[in-house]
Design a protein around this nucleic acid. Structure first.
Length: 490
RNA sequence: CGGGGUGUAGCGUAGCCCGGUAUCGCGCCACAUUUGGGAUGUGGAGGUCGUAGGUUCGAAUCCUGCCACCCCGACCA
């Protein structure tokens, strides 16, 4: 691992890129826009998956798996859906290679597929094609299914975790007998995402709805959680869609209700992706490296011995083992790093880079005094404390770090959310004090587009439970009943 | 996909304009001394110069195609 990290103030995006590789989370692969998620990065994803998966199950969902490939014709069945994804699909046209006789492998033109297969950019179509066979009666509803999968979107410009051509995600796809029930599901899953973002990732989010032009292709309504990154840009962290009967109509999925009448099924879909790891990085990390919330940290506590003699190391190891056992009983993950190939200072820097929340150092002094040196990653505050009841102390400290980084992120967001009342002020705030900008808007796509074209700011969402107040659109001066949240976004 | 830039050892780089088989630092290996914030010394290993062609007696260097990454733009549930 090389020294140092570009500071956030010098070059935020370089800081991000360096951090991802230096913290050993991921690296570029040989394939354009596709990344290798390294073991340390993947273990964060596994932690996220475990927590989310439990939340999905607690809300009644089951996991299933659908194919990677989707017949091309499926995409043309829902008009706005194809429009949204057509320009970024990977297409399989052949099923065989052959030797060209000159030492190269070429596509066998004789092995052309009758119908091309699309590598899924999202699975609504293949799933609704399948649901048609599962649903006849209201007794078959609701269907509450989630899938953990990879998807491919041929993005023109990619960034590790934030936007990659292939990414990992989960996509929930539910089917309901009534619009009301589907809307409730959409809102329930948005709340699951918000809960996860805030209580696991320690990242405050705004719950809201997208404007018509920002909606998912094929949705009647798109709900989202929006987070604010440290550079003042917004990041869409999760979406939950009310799909109405669009996909049921496109795939002819009808059910008989209690009165024996046929109706199309109501649908939702919702997803979060490995982009959350990008969000996690940008929400909390500093110029020394990653800062992880304890609940998602693969290693919560690292113990580093500082010794001069083998005898000292033996004593420290005995203490570390006992302490590790105590912590493991409390479900705290511990790593004892007794490598003698690296010196303590190197290890301190390394675990800071990797965001381990709590670091203990035990040395000769501590052997003599019955103490340890304990350092918390979020504030880097260092103290020497007695080893009595250390496991309880650490458990409390991890809880404190979790709430402290949330509070810090919340403070940052509050300080960087500004109400403005004129377009001049809007533009000035965007340039000088990036963050969320709350302003009145006349509700038209034309005004929204003008603002986007002129300032690169988009309407991130119309916050749920928004305060209703009389106001005037900052562009047209037309009346508006509520403010919406603008920002430049990832 | 358009404009600009970059690609030389695991990482960061010099050399390129003006052609003669590659510089330095970190890291790596061995040994010794070290170990409470990224150790020091001595010795050593490691390179199809992104890739495929072309020009040339000779290419990291000049020319062309391709690939990847970075920045700007367009695009982006």
């Amino acid at each position: 691992m090389s020294k140092g990290l570009t500071s956030r103030s010098d070059d935020y995006s370089q800081w991000y890129n360096e951090l991802v590789t230096k913290a050993d989370l991921a690296e570029h692969s040989a394939v354009r826009g596709c990344m290798v998620i390294k073991p340390y990065g993947y273990s964060i994803w596994e932690k996220m998956q475990a927590a989310l998966d439990q939340m999905f199950k607690d809300t009644g969902h089951s996991n299933a798996y659908f194919p990677l490939f989707i017949p091309k014709s499926f995409f043309s069945k829902e008009a706005s859906h194809v429009e949204g994804f057509a320009t970024e699909c990977a297409v399989v046209t052949h099923y065989r290679l052959k030797n060209d006789g000159k030492g190269s492998i070429v596509v066998d033109e004789n092995a052309k597929l009758e119908e091309e297969l699309i590598v899924r950019p999202t699975s609504e179509t293949i799933i609704w094609n399948t649901y048609k066979g599962w649903i006849q009666s209201y007794r078959d509803l609701p269907i509450l299914v989630n899938q953990w999968a990879n998807v491919v979107r041929w993005e023109m410009r990619t960034r590790l975790f934030l936007r990659t051509a292939e990414f990992l995600w989960q996509e929930g796809h539910t089917a309901h007998a009534t619009a009301q029930e589907a809307i409730e599901e959409t809102e329930r899953m948005l709340e699951v995402y918000a809960d996860f973002a805030e209580n696991w990732m320690a990242m405050p989010v705004v719950r809201g709805r997208k404007t018509a032009s920002e909606r998912f292709a094929g949705a009647l309504d798109t709900y989202c959680i929006e987070a604010l990154m440290q550079d003042g840009k917004a990041l869409q962290a999760g979406t939950s869609h009310f799909l109405g009967q669009n996909f049921a109509k496109a795939f002819d999925v009808k059910f008989a209700n209690k009165e024996g009448k046929l109706d199309h099924v109501w649908a939702t879909s919702w997803g979060v992706s490995t982009r959350l790891i990008g969000a996690l990085i940008m929400a909390h990390s500093d110029d020394s490296g990653l800062v992880l919330p304890p609940k998602l940290a693969p290693i919560q506590v690292v113990i580093i011995p500082v010794h001069k003699t083998e005898a000292e190391l033996d004593q420290i190891t005995a203490i570390a083992k006992e302490l590790s056992a105590q912590l493991k009983k409390r479900n705290i993950s511990v790593k004892y790093d007794s490598r003698d190939t690296q010196r303590p200072g190197f290890k301190f820097a390394e675990y800071e880079m990797k965001g381990v929340p709590v670091r203990l150092a035990i040395g000769a002094r501590d052997l003599e005094n019955g103490t340890v040196e304990i350092v918390r990653r979020d504030t880097k505050e260092k103290q020497t404390i007695n080893r009595d009841n250390l496991d309880q102390f650490i458990e409390d400290l991890l809880g404190d770090i979790q709430s402290n980084i949330y509070a810090k992120a919340l403070r940052f967001r509050n300080q960087n959310t500004r109400e403005v009342n004129s377009y001049d002020e809007f533009k000035r705030v965007l340039d000088e004090q990036p963050g969320f900008v709350s302003a009145h808007w006349d509700g038209t796509p034309e005004t929204e587009k003008q603002i986007k074209d002129e300032t690169k700011a988009t309407i991130r969402c119309i916050p749920l439970n928004n305060k209703q107040e009389e106001g005037k659109c900052i562009i047209t001066g037309k009346p508006s009943s509520q403010r919406v949240l603008f920002a430049r976004a990832y």
